[in-house]
């Protein structure tokens, strides 16, 4: 199956620009997550790929074929909707067989194939049930089986887990990922849940205000966020506003050593993940004096909320460091140079 390539694709609704001109390549057989907050344009982008919205500008190609003007029913990209959009007037098996029967396959053969797809999604005994008789997780599996029945070149999922409870969501994320890896089908998942994106995706596309902020594998997105938005949106981060000086960032009266390519005097934002910062006993480079204001034991991690001269910050420890600290204790927080990121500070 060929790559899906978006070139300069944008979408406007009246005077509102929902998606800024976007260039993206969805590699064949890979799972890509479109991740961003509500209203960032990720669903609109997915709907343009599915053919449910016409791009205002740009082209969409599947390999060499330009499919920009191809209507949705001719693209036949399997799609799972946020509400699952299962047909209530059909049984589970008829829902799965829908694309096959309207495509001209004889009904007995279509129902037989639907049954085998239901087995794939572990719903073999549910074929004769009505949609109203299924739980949320079962409905989602039916929606996946139905979308896969037509053997689509591209598989699209619009917030597929949002209707499920937290435990089921985690299970389904793993199941969906395993299924995708088994079928090796090019898959695009829209989600606002970073955990979901990190669990399932080969590549994450982070979007904000209709723009693509970063395209990278999950690990890079987390450890090397391209900008402050990505650093803030993916995981937790401590932010400190300062001014860049040669070799470091000046925050108030403190200087934090970090080499970066900024002109001296540039307003910058310094970021560090809570688990990258650590509490130390000996002073050293980039050590900030602080006072613990709150301690939260979350089981696998212990979270320290601190007040410091450069601003409030959070430090996370996985397991235990063997020292019992309580609110009111003085502490030295070390910000390792390798874990610090510096971004230009833009006006909100």
């Amino acid at each position: 199956m060929p790559d899906l390539i978006l070139s300069g694709v944008s979408k406007s609704f009246g005077s509102t620009r929902a998606v800024e001109p976007t260039d993206l390549t969805f590699a064949e057989g890979q799972l890509t997550a479109l991740l961003g907050p509500s209203g960032c344009g990720k669903t609109t982008l997915l709907r343009m790929i599915a053919g449910l919205e016409d791009p205002t500008r740009g082209t969409i190609r599947l390999g060499d074929a330009d499919i920009t003007a191809l209507p949705a029913h001719k693209r036949k990209f399997g799609m799972v909707f946020q509400s699952f959009a299962l047909f209530p007037h059909y049984t589970v098996r008829e829902n799965v067989a829908y694309s096959l029967t309207i495509g001209g396959m004889a009904k007995p053969a279509a129902l037989e194939k639907a049954q085998s797809l239901l087995e794939t999604v572990q719903l073999s005994g549910f074929g004769d049930r009505r949609i109203g008789e299924l739980s949320g997780g079962q409905r989602q599996r039916v929606a996946i089986a139905r979308a896969l029945a037509q053997e689509p070149k591209v598989f699209l999922l619009d917030e597929p887990m949002s209707a499920l409870d937290a435990k089921l969501r985690e299970e389904m994320q793993v199941e969906l990922r395993l299924l995708q890896q088994r079928l090796k089908i090019t898959t695009i998942v829209v989600t606002h849940d970073q955990r979901e994106a990190m669990t399932m995706a080969d590549t994450i596309v982070v979007m904000s205000n209709g723009r693509v902020e970063q395209v990278a594998p999950p690990r890079d997105i987390y450890h090397k966020p391209a900008n402050a938005f990505v650093a803030d949106f993916i995981g937790k981060a401590n932010f400190f506003d300062g001014v860049y000086q040669k070799g470091g960032v000046k925050i108030g009266n403190h200087a934090v050593d970090i080499p970066a390519n900024f002109a001296p005097g540039s307003p910058v934002r310094l970021a560090i993940r809570p688990e990258s910062a650590c509490i130390v006993t000996e002073p050293g480079q980039n050590c900030i004096a602080a006072e613990i204001s709150f301690v939260r034991d979350l089981g696998p991690v212990k979270e320290y909320h601190l007040k410091s001269d450069i601003g409030p910050l959070i430090v996370e420890y996985a397991g235990t460091d063997g020292v019992q600290r309580v609110a009111g204790d003085k502490a030295l927080v070390h910000l390792p140079v390798g874990a610090l990121r510096v971004y230009p500070r833009v006006a909100a």
């Binding site: 053919g51 449910l52 036949k76 509400s83 959009a85 007037h89 309207i102 139905r146 979308a147 699209l156």
Partner: peptide, 29 residues
Amino acid sequence: LDPSLSEAARTMGASRWTVTRTVTLPSIR
């Protein structure tokens, strides 16, 4: 009527008439 029902049918290869015949009309019978 949930518009995603007809959109789902379209992504599965149904023309507008097929969507009306197999999804819209049965949903509002």
